[in-house]
Amino acid sequence: MTITTMPTARPEREAGAVSLRGKLQDALPKIVLAPSFAAVLVFVYGFILWTIYLSFTNSKTFPSYVLTDSRAYQRLWTWTFQSDPPSSWYTSITNLGIFGVLYIGVCLALGLLLAILLDQKIRGEGVLRPIYLYPMALSFIVTGVAWKWFLDPGLGLERTLHEWGFTSFHFDWIKNKDRVIYTVVIAGVWQASGFVMAMFLAGLRGIDGEILKAAQIDGATPVATYRRIVIPMLRPIFLSAFIVLAHMAIKSYDLVVALTSGGPGGSAWLPSNFMYEYTFKRNEMAVGSASAVIMLMTITAIIVPYLYSELRETNR
């Protein structure tokens, strides 16, 4: 038996010659990546610096590039403590506090509950799961429109219950300046909790069945198994879900606009609405920029440690 000979398969050898072509070949991967990376450097990091710069100017309707001082931040700082009557900034950050805590907390709790319920060998899981999750496919605008209608005291839930005979039922939060932020929470939770459920469900399905068998043999009740073994093992999922929800909460803008149009007297504002309004509507560009910088710093404080640890883990 002889081996097939393929004379044409033998490449010409350019002994030791490192040609220009070769150099180009070597640099090709970097050349391919470069435009994307440059775009990110300029349009993300460059623009962030630009925004920071603007926040130290006296820009009003149009950007001004004369550095003044930290006046914009000083004003935000003063407003932070101006609670009676509340300044727009005070409203925005307290709303973010309320919204953030409830939105994250309820989404996590509800998502975990649904995931655990769904993980009990449910007949029809394939039907139920998409039902919980579909709101995630809707835009905040559509979500806002739907809930605005549903929560409208004159036409929605309140009237429906009145018609059913619960005439004492009263639910006008969407028009109430002290309550309107909670309607944002309701719509937000409705939209995102199914997604959190999906994350937890994936986590539950990833747990080694032998560990659970061992717990059973050790005599753990189902409740104890979940409380002592399963839920602690879902810790990474809690972290991931928290990160996603937290950054969504801080970035939330559309939902407030569509659901409440800002609420009575801007009472439903979040910092993102504050930024948009001050920049584009109230001609206080410097203040708007300063608020954007504060939002950025808040997210950075949450995200950077997370990304750092994630990237370190995949170190190889």
Binding site: M1, I3, T4, M6, T8, A9, P11
Partner: peptide, 23 residues
């Protein structure tokens, strides 16, 4: 594939593959 990358004509490639497959 390697022959293709080196521009070996199709007919030759098929012959070579068949020889190796037989071996």
């Amino acid at each position: 594939f390697a022959l293709e990358m080196r521009g070996v004509p199709k007919a030759e490639r098929r012959l070579a593959v068949e020889n190796v497959a037989k071996m």
